[in-house]
Design a binder for these strands. Structure first.
Lengths: 343, 343
DNA sequence: GTGAAAGCGCTAACAA
DNA sequence: TTGTTAGCGCTTTCAC
C-alpha cells in the first residue's frame, strides 16, 4: 500500500535531457526558439520518463487544453452525437473534453455548472441547449470563449450552432402533405417565457409547423395541442386530438419521445398506424430507429453540430476577439413506417 | 469587446477584509484557527466581491474538489441514473463532477481519458464499466483514489460497486418459470477474453441464467445464443431461436436493446408477445418503460450505485489507505406486458 | 537559440 | 488566533 510515487515533472525531464525547464516547456508548446537537436533530446527524455504535463499547472499561466461541454439534460438522446462530433474534431489536437452534467431545466443549476467549469480552468465552453437567460450567457461568454449549441438567437459575445428547426418542421409538413394529408396536427412543448419562445428549438418547430401549413395552403387545418416533450405529453396530446369532432389524419410530434406517447394512445384507441393515422416525430432518436417502431423522424446532424461547435471554439480560443459567427445546419427527413397516404 | 476583467483572487478578498490571505484560505477550507469574527469579515468580503476560488490553483497544493467520472459508452442508457446518484450524493459538498467521454469499447481510448482526467487534477475517479485490463485499473488506482462501477472482480487498490447480475438473471428465470415456462432461452453478448468473461456484467448474467435454470431443474432446457447487446444482435439471436425444431416459450435477452431486436423478429415472424412467446430484457431502460413496448426488465438501481460510488470515493479521498470495499446491490424485477404464462 | 528568474492563485508549514 | 514565507508545476518575460 505505498503512497503514490511522485509524479514526473518538467524538472525531471530537463535534468534528464540536460537542458533548462524553459527548453522543455518550449518543446511542449512547439514554441519559437528551439533547435531540432534540442527538440530531439527533450522528446526522447519525455518518452523515456513517461512524462505527462499537468494540465492544471499549465493553466496557472497558460492554457489547460481542456474544453468544457455543458449538458443541461443528460438524458437528451440528441447529445451523444454532438459529443461524438466534438471529440472527433478535437482528436488530433492537444485538447480534451470534459462534460458538466447540468440540472435539467434548472437555470440556477446550469449557471453553477458553468461557473464550476470556469473555476476549473476550462479554456472554452460549449453550452448545449442552455436554458439560461441571455444576460447570463453573455456574462459567461465575457469570461471565457463560448459557443452555444441548439438554441436560436444570437449574441455578439458567443458563436452559435443550431439546427434549422423551421426547415425541419417544414420537412415533416411537406412530407405529410405530399402524401396527401391535410388535417395535420402538431403536439408542441408548452412554453410561455418570451426568451424561450424566441430561442428554444421546440418553440421554433411549432412556429415552423404553422408557417409550413400556411405555405401549403393548409392554414385552416392548423391544429396545435400544447403539452410537453415527454411520453406522457404525447399521450395526453393524442388523447386531446382524438376527442376532436374531426380527427386529424396525421400527427406531427415535436419530439420522438412525445411521438412514442402518441403511438401508445393511438394503439389504445384501436387505431392503426399508419393505416388510420400517420405519425412523425423529431430528433431521429434510437427509439425511432427501432425496427418495431420505425418512426418517421427528422435527423438533426448532431455530429456536424458538434464538429462545427468545436471548430468555432478553437478559433475563438486562439483569437478571442473574433466576431461572433452563426452556423445553421439543415436537418434531414428520415421517412419510415409510421407515415403513409391517408385512407 | 473588452477583454475579460481580471478575476477576483484571494488577495483581493484579503485586502478588502483587512486580513491575511492565509486567513481567507482557512475560512475557505473551514480549517482550524479562525475566530468567528474573522470568519464573518472574510465571508462578507467574499460575498461583496463575488469571489470564487480557482479550483485549478487550489489543486497545485491541495485539492481541486473535482471528481472525474469516466463513461466508456456515452450511449449506455444505464449511466444517467448513476450520474444522478453521484451528483445527488455530492450536492451538499464542495465537490463537482466532470464526465470524461471514453472511446466505446476501446481500451486505449479509455486509458487516455483516465490519464487526461488525472492530468487535470481530479481528486478521485469513478470508472463506469471500464473495459481496461486489471493491471491498468490497478495502475490508475495507485495514482489517484478510484472506484470502479459496473464490473465484477475486486482489487486491493480500488473500491467496487456492482449490481448482482447473477441474482438479476435469476429474477428473470424464476419469474418466467413461476409463470410456467420451461423452454427459456437466453440471448447473450459474445465474449472471449478471460478477464471480461470473469468480470463483465454480460458474462455474469449468462452464467446466472445457466445457474438459475439448473436450480429450477431446467438444466436440459438451457439454450443460449451468442450475439451482441444490440438491436441487431437481438434480432439475429431471435431468428436463430425461431429456426430451432422446438421453439422456446420465453426469451430472456441480456439487455433491453437486444430485447427490442427480439421483439422485432417475433413481430416479423407473425408471433404475438406474450401470447406465443414471452420476452424479458435487462436494464429497465426508457424503451422498456414505453407504454407501447411495456417490456419486462430488470432494474439495476443506478441511483444507488452512483450514490454509493460517490460515498466510497469521498471516503477514499479523505483516507487513501482505507482497505478496498466491495458493494453489491440487488436488482429488482419490473414485470410488464411482455411476459405471461405460456400457451 | 538558450536559460535564469519571476510569478500564476492558492495551501501548508512555521513563527509570532 | 493570526500572519509570514515558501513552494506546487508550469509558462513567460527578458537577459544573454
Amino acid at each position: 500500500m505505498a503512497s503514490p510515487p511522485r509524479r514526473i515533472t518538467i524538472v525531471d525531464v530537463a535534468k534528464h535531457a540536460q537542458v533548462s525547464t524553459t527548453a522543455v516547456s518550449k518543446v511542449l508548446r512547439n514554441a519559437y526558439g528551439t533547435s531540432p537537436a534540442m527538440r530531439e533530446k527533450v522528446q526522447q527524455a519525455i518518452a523515456e520518463l513517461g512524462y505527462r504535463p499537468r494540465a492544471a499547472a499549465r493553466g496557472m499561466r497558460g492554457q489547460t487544453y481542456t474544453v468544457g461541454v455543458m449538458l443541461p439534460d443528460i438524458r437528451n438522446p440528441f447529445f451523444p452525437d454532438i459529443i461524438d462530433g466534438i471529440t472527433e474534431r478535437l482528436r488530433d489536437t492537444e485538447y480534451h473534453v470534459l462534460l458538466g452534467p447540468g440540472g435539467c431545466d434548472d437555470e440556477e443549476g446550469e449557471a453553477e455548472v458553468a461557473e464550476a467549469m470556469i473555476d476549473r480552468g476550462m479554456d472554452g465552453l460549449i453550452l448545449i441547449a442552455p436554458v439560461s437567460s441571455r444576460s447570463r450567457l453573455d456574462r459567461i461568454a465575457s469570461i471565457v470563449p463560448t459557443v452555444v449549441v441548439g438554441r436560436h438567437g444570437h449574441s455578439a459575445r458567443y458563436d452559435t450552432v443550431v439546427d434549422d428547426d423551421t426547415a425541419g418542421a417544414a420537412l415533416v409538413v411537406n412530407h405529410l402533405a405530399d402524401l396527401g394529408h391535410k388535417r395535420i396536427a402538431h403536439v408542441e412543448h408548452f412554453e410561455t417565457d418570451p426568451d424561450r419562445l424566441a430561442e428554444m428549438p421546440n418553440a421554433i418547430r411549432a412556429q415552423g409547423y404553422r408557417q409550413a401549413m400556411r405555405a401549403r395552403g393548409l392554414a385552416d387545418e392548423i391544429d396545435v395541442v400544447s403539452t410537453a416533450y415527454t411520453q406522457e405529453g404525447g399521450y395526453l396530446g393524442a388523447k386531446e386530438l382524438l376527442a376532436r369532432p374531426r380527427l386529424p389524419t396525421a400527427i406531427f410530434a415535436g419530439a420522438d419521445i412525445a411521438a412514442m406517447g402518441v403511438l401508445h394512445a393511438l394503439a389504445e384507441a384501436g387505431l392503426s398506424v399508419p393505416g388510420d393515422i400517420s405519425v412523425a416525430g423529431y430528433d431521429n432518436t434510437t427509439f425511432a430507429a427501432l425496427g418495431l417502431i420505425s418512426l418517421t423522424s427528422v435527423d438533426q446532424a448532431g455530429r456536424q453540430t458538434g464538429s462545427n461547435a468545436a471548430r468555432l471554439l478553437l478559433d475563438r480560443i486562439a483569437n478571442p476577439q473574433t466576431p461572433a459567427a452563426q452556423i445553421k445546419l439543415s436537418p434531414t427527413l428520415i421517412a419510415r413506417g409510421t407515415t403513409a397516404p391517408p385512407r
